[in-house]
């Protein structure tokens, strides 16, 4: 009898895996709490590898994987890590996951790994990972932290892929180059399109990101005070 009561109490205390709060963790980073456009994290790779859609997709997947699992592990260890050396502990755990991603890429998509060169390694210092570890995983339970990692990885991916889409379309005149459903957009319409070299430069990416932020903030009403 008493055990049954206890079970009921237990059940009341534990929330469902996808409660409203947990869903927010996934959806907020896509828009009003976006890691790139609002939290200003992970800018370097967003500018460097978005000249085509394919590397942008690979990078987003890699980062989502690393953020989610580092968040999970740091969150499980959060009560045992001494705060003085927490940065080294965090970086060590993050780099273990990055080494895994790097070795996987080298083993299965070698040309992609070559193309992305140092930027895979730089996931370690991608501020999104460190930022989420510090801001979320150090103070929350493993499951929400895991979701937070996935949400932020996806929010990063949304911006990355939309930038890569514009840059590849107008910079090179193709879409999804290197993927099975590659599309020569302008060629198939019979237009001789001269690619816009500015968009392929990091400078063009910077200006484009500025404009994306402008559009996003016009829609969701987020304002920054000077």
């Amino acid at each position: 009898m008493s055990t049954a009561v206890q079970e009921v109490v237990q059940e009341k205390k534990s929330e469902p895996l996808f409660s409203k709060k947990n869903k927010k963790l996934l959806s907020n980073p896509l828009d009003i709490d976006n890691p790139i456009t609002v939290q200003v994290l992970g800018i370097c790779s967003a500018l460097a590898i978005t000249s085509q859609v394919k590397p942008a997709i690979v990078m987003s997947l890699g980062l989502t994987f690393v953020t989610a699992f580092s968040n999970l592990f740091i969150s499980m260890l959060r009560n045992t890590i001494p705060s003085r050396i927490r940065i080294i502990v965090q970086l060590a755990i993050v780099s273990v996951w990055v080494i895994m991603v790097d070795q996987l890429l080298k083993a299965y998509v070698y040309d992609m790994a070559k193309l992305m060169s140092v930027y895979v390694g730089l996931i370690i210092t991608n501020c999104i990972v460190m930022g989420r570890l510090e801001a979320f995983a150090m103070g929350n339970k493993p499951w929400p932290s895991f979701l937070d990692g996935i949400g932020n990885g996806l929010g990063y991916g949304v911006i990355l892929i939309s930038m890569a889409f514009v840059r590849e379309l107008f910079g090179g005149g193709t879409l999804f180059k290197g993927l099975p459903f590659e599309w020569q957009v302008f060629k198939s319409m019979g237009i001789a399109y001269q690619g816009n070299g500015l968009l392929l430069l990091p400078a063009g990416a910077c200006i484009l990101l500025g404009i994306i932020i402008w559009i996003q903030r016009s829609i969701n009403g987020y304002r920054e005070s000077h």
Binding site: L201, A203, C206, G210, I211
Partner: peptide, 16 residues
């Protein structure tokens, strides 16, 4: 809406 981060990115692009 461009204030802050947005205009800074455009500035960095131009400087680059």
């Amino acid at each position: 809406p461009l204030r802050g981060l947005g205009i800074t990115f455009i500035l960095v692009g131009l400087m680059s």
